[in-house]
Design a protein around this nucleic acid. Structure first.
Lengths: 207, 207
DNA sequence: GCTGATGTATAGCACTGTTATGCATAGCGT
DNA sequence: ACGCTATGCATAACAGTGCTATACATCAGC
């Protein structure tokens, strides 16, 4: 029966790969297509091989992260929003550890850089709003603060995923880092602490 | 001629694996032993398989890092020493990128945790000395500051290795982070900047 | 100078991703 | 309506991976 190049097959394979990743199953060419009724060749027509599949999986990871962070609508407190972005980022990494690892496993291009750029843009935007609101000094570079936040978040996520840091310590490390970072950017210590607490309120490390 | 279980073979294989990693060659069972005169079975008698080889390679990475950081003898300025440890850590990661990745690729045990613990102990010790010297507040937890420093360094190393951050920006990000971190720990801004500049003086990103 | 034990080389196994071949189907021109 | 071409897919084979079973060569002890 098959002839039409269903994009549905493509999506199904990517989602199946993400599911297998979540179940900590090995994602292999044959195990991926097993039971789907589709053959190994489908991976080649749709993704041009396993490398292409992993590219699509990484893309999926960035897309999901972008969607998750886009749900965090800005409030009147931009510093709280910045902290909430950090909490959402860490939450995404801890809830989908293998997907997160795949996202940064290889420094290859994404199919669509937009999702990654948009996500980082959210971070820069929050810093810029904190600046505009007078919380951060006008001298600081929003991209620089955002980059530093990302670097710390990435290290924290990977060390947490790898088990080199106890899961219960991650939020504390993140909030302590945020405090130092925001104060260095010019925020008032007390206000900063309040904002961080509010931003991390909904964070709960996965069991 | 072979019968005696030479430990020399073991060391030779680990060093060869590290060399292949440095040359960005694929370290595979057959390619590893090719040309060494020894057969694939040697990997099993000495390492009990490829997993054991990778454990030994990770161990080698930690040992080299420990040796490198141990060369940085403490000076009269503990904050400078702390910064120098960060520069040495980043230098190790950038000069041996694949070895660094292997060190943290899998969250499996090391053969000898001592090297890793000693290295982290150097970090804690520097913070404690900064505290004893009155540079850092007596309230801060040395292990906490050390952990935060490590988390940021790890994220910076991996993003730098992966090419997601330009190599020329890494030192600037690291020093900016150190500044915020040390000031948050209680150090004076001007003195802190001087110490960081001194600690990072010898740092040069590999071409 | 045997005997037992131990490390190693050879060859094969199951598995990986990839590719060559053949076939069934869909779209299109006449 | 028919045949033609092109395309997507299934099958099977290929080189490569880590690993293991078997046989051989070497050494230690008596």
């Amino acid at each position: 029966m098959p002839k039409a190049a269903d994009p549905a097959v493509r999506r199904a394979l990517v989602e199946r790969a993400a599911e297998m990743l979540a179940r900590r199953e090995a994602v292999t060419l044959r195990s991926l297509v097993a039971g789907t009724g589709v053959s190994t060749m489908a991976v080649y027509t749709h993704f041009d091989g396993m490398d292409g599949l992993w590219r699509a999986v990484r893309q999926e990871g960035f897309t999901r992260l972008a969607a998750r962070l886009a749900e965090l609508r800005p409030t009147a407190d931009p510093v709280r929003d910045l902290a909430a972005l950090g909490a959402g980022y860490l939450g995404h990494a801890l809830e989908h550890p293998d997907l997160y690892r795949a996202m940064f496993d290889v420094a290859a291009d994404l199919e669509d850089e937009q999702a990654a750029d948009d996500t980082f843009g959210l971070l820069i935007g929050a810093v810029a709003r904190a600046q505009a609101a007078g919380r951060f000094s006008p001298d600081v570079d929003p991209a620089g603060v955002a980059t530093g936040t990302w670097v710390f978040g990435h290290g924290l996520a990977l060390l947490g995923i790898g088990g080199l840091l106890p899961a219960t310590s991650l939020a504390g490390l993140a909030t302590a880092d945020a405090e130092a970072r925001y104060v260095a950017a010019g925020d008032d210590l007390a206000a900063c602490r309040r904002s961080i607490r509010n931003g991390w309120r909904s964070f709960a490390p996965p069991a």
